[in-house]
Write a protein that binds this DNA or RNA. Structure first.
Lengths: 194, 194
DNA sequence: AAAATTTAAATGCCCATTTAAAAAATTGAA
DNA sequence: TTCAATTTTTTAAATGGGCATTTAAATTTT
């Protein structure tokens, strides 16, 4: 148990510091020294624990992805119907814990880098595939086949687009309203009489 | 007339090179020398014409924004109804000229940097405000007040989200299908019977 | 005593921007 | 037209700075 305690603590601390530092300064510009300073450590210790700046960013995004996944599964467990489960995905995306300017910033930085960093590209692909498959599973019970993919892409793009804008936001985010809006959008897409 | 011919030509060439180079390597990583090489020039000449790397990026994004604006106005001029004009905005966004992996890449890089570079933030704000006002104008004729903003935000987020994903795309984009899907999404949002 | 953790300092690179000088284009007077 | 004078364009080389990562040694924990 006590085996690798400090290691875990440092990982946690450095990832937290990375989230804050990358949000404040931008991934391209932030330095190892700045991140380390936020965690009360030295740049060298980041390399001791993570190996490189790139691997630190990778670990940080993995952490955010895990939080997203857990937020989704929590809500999934409580949902009783396909519709509820669909909403669970949306609610997770805009949950109080995740829908913050800080984290949305990280995602946008991540999206910008992913095409140029294979390991980040893989993470992006994994995350996207997971969300896609949840959406497909629930939408198949809610919509005829000829609309499913359109609605799925619309919802996923909507979530990304809102995060994107949140990252540029000067004002406080309102997760409660974001969830309400997301539900409205989903309902509009689901109940069309075209 | 012949006044500043070369200046204009070089601006054009260097902006084209920037689009290609930033797409290929990422804004954070691409060097002045690489951009210059693509244009058959030297890094120093970029500074002669643009002053700095940041101002080059700014000019490049201004150029992309102008293209988007023009694509929209072209279609606007032909549209006869609010619905047609709404579609004009969507079609412009996914027009053959603009909806390319190269350009979507640039936008994502831009979104990533804007929060940290005041001049880019201003550009982003200007562009967004313009699209917002077009959408509002047309939606006010198409929807009751209580749905307008929800649908507007949904459509704008959708457009951004699709570009975001396009930037990660390994395969060729299909602007014709993108326009068709965008229309479907808009129609679903407009005709809901909730 | 051994292993794990920490960091100061060294290393090695890379790059935007400036400078100074050359090359090319333009002008205008002869 | 012609050719010095002037202006514009171009770049090689210098400048100055920054930073990720490594190393080697010290410190702390086990």
């Amino acid at each position: 148990m006590g085996r690798t305690r400090i290691r875990d603590i440092r990982h946690q601390e450095l990832i937290e510091a990375t989230i804050t530092a990358v949000h404040q300064r931008g991934y391209a510009v932030v330095t190892m020294a700045e991140i380390a300073a936020l965690a009360g450590a030295s740049a060298a210790s980041i390399n001791y624990y993570f190996g490189s700046k790139e691997r630190l960013m990778e670990a940080t995004m993995r952490h955010l992805m895990t939080m997203l996944k857990e937020a989704m599964l929590e809500r999934y467990a409580l949902a009783k119907s396909p519709h509820d489960r669909l909403m669970a995905v949306l609610d997770a995306n805009f949950s109080d814990r995740l829908y913050t300017i800080e984290q949305c910033s990280l995602w946008v930085q991540f999206w910008g880098s992913a095409p140029y960093v294979p390991t980040l590209a893989r993470l992006h692909q994994i995350n996207r595939a997971r969300v896609t498959s949840h959406f497909r599973a629930e939408l198949s019970a809610l919509l005829p086949e000829n609309r499913r993919e359109t609605v799925r892409v619309a919802l996923q793009s909507y979530m990304d687009g809102v995060w994107l804008e949140a990252a540029q936001s000067a004002v406080r985010l309102d997760p409660i309203q974001a969830r309400a809006e997301a539900r409205k959008v989903a309902d509009l897409l689901l109940t069309s009489d075209v």
